[in-house]
């Protein structure tokens, strides 16, 4: 066994715990040496401890600097705050990295999609500054800052360069929101000057959506403010197989949390029928972050093989396997290949 890593596991709620157990089974079978520290987060926590994010959980993440997270629930329109947004704020996880890459065995109408999305994760309309300014008017402040915009652009160019990427586009609506999106675009252009080897440009968000569904292969890397990033990363996930296969990482300067981007599907909780692939591919992304490339490759290869065979896949991809059976099939495939 190689170097031991200590990772905080946040199973979340709804189907989260059963998904995370399946993912742990697969990751542990990959040969990587991980000590998992389980901590609580989310709605169950709110009911038990009066907070979405207990201090014990915060301290564990701060200590380990890396976490794998299952889904959590956020009510719409009312009720408690989002556990996800709280985590991003507390640890200043300013970069949401959302790769959208075709999984070969999932038949899609496109030959090639391999887009790296870099979503600014902490400001924009997510600054939680909302007011009912009269009894019939609500407003939400869209907060865009120079340092916040500059650092996500810097992060994106650095990541793209390390990954051998060739082209980055900034997505914006600066033709209408000239101050806010204009500032975001200005910062991007300033950073782009430092990376002459990477082609850079910009595209208006509505055009970008249209281009993504017509010809997604033209895009390499996208840098987006928070709200457009939230929407377009799901659009990109839809292009390659849906949220059930979409990995995500929330990264700051000193901490990274890897998570599925889908919801907690509470109505399926305990049924052990949901597809754990999104948390699993987030786990693969985490292993690569930890420089455990061999383990990541093993899991990915086995997962693709199981999906290709279609014998032990979950209902959403046309099978009847349970969450655990799918995970075990991946483990068996890894061992068979060994």
């Amino acid at each position: 066994m190689g170097t031991q890593h200590v990772v905080t596991m946040l199973p979340g709620e709804g189907t989260g715990p059963e998904i995370c157990e399946a993912v742990r089974l697969v990751i542990d079978a990959s040969g990587v040496n991980i000590k998992w520290e389980y901590e609580e987060i989310g709605l169950d926590c709110l009911e038990k401890h009066g907070t979405l994010l207990p201090d014990k959980t915060v301290q564990a993440i701060a200590r380990n600097k890396i976490a794998l997270k299952g889904p959590t629930t956020t009510p719409i329109g009312t009720g408690h705050k989002s556990a996800n947004v709280t985590l991003r704020k507390v640890f200043d996880l300013y970069a949401n990295v959302r790769p959208a890459k075709l999984i070969p065995v999932l038949k899609r109408p496109w030959d090639k999609i391999d887009i790296l999305n870099f979503r600014e994760n902490t400001e924009d309309c997510y600054a939680a500054i909302e007011h009912m300014v009269s009894d019939e008017v609500a407003q939400c402040l869209k907060v865009i800052t120079w340092p916040g915009s500059y650092r996500i652009a810097e992060f994106a160019f650095k990541w793209a360069k390390a990954a051998g990427r060739k082209k980055i586009y900034c997505v914006h609506k600066a033709n209408i929101m000239k101050m806010t999106d204009g500032l975001f675009l200005d910062a991007f252009r300033e950073v782009a000057k430092k990376y002459p080897d990477i082609e850079s440009g910009d595209i208006i968000v509505d055009n970008c959506c249209m281009q993504l569904v017509r010809n997604p292969a033209q895009f390499d890397c996208l840098v987006l403010p928070n709200l457009y990033g939230d929407i377009l990363t799901d659009l990109c996930a839809g292009l390659v197989g849906g949220l059930g296969f979409a990995p995500g990482a929330n990264v700051g300067d000193n901490c990274a949390i890897f998570e599925a981007v889908h919801g907690s599907a509470p109505k399926y909780a305990g049924l052990k029928k949901v597809n754990p692939s999104a948390v699993l591919v987030s786990g693969i992304m985490m292993l690569r972050w930890m420089k455990e490339e061999a383990a990541a490759d093993r899991i990915q290869k086995a997962m693709f093989a199981v999906l290709d065979e279609r014998k032990h896949v979950t209902y959403d991809v046309g099978g009847t396997a349970t969450t655990d059976e799918y995970a075990q099939a991946i483990v068996d495939k890894m061992h068979a290949k060994a």
Binding site: K89, Y94, T122, E123, G252
Partner: peptide, 19 residues
Amino acid sequence: SNRGTKVWPGFVSPDLLMV
């Protein structure tokens, strides 16, 4: 709060970007 994150009272990460 600063950029939407509460910075007083209570814990504030020393790494937090503030404007």
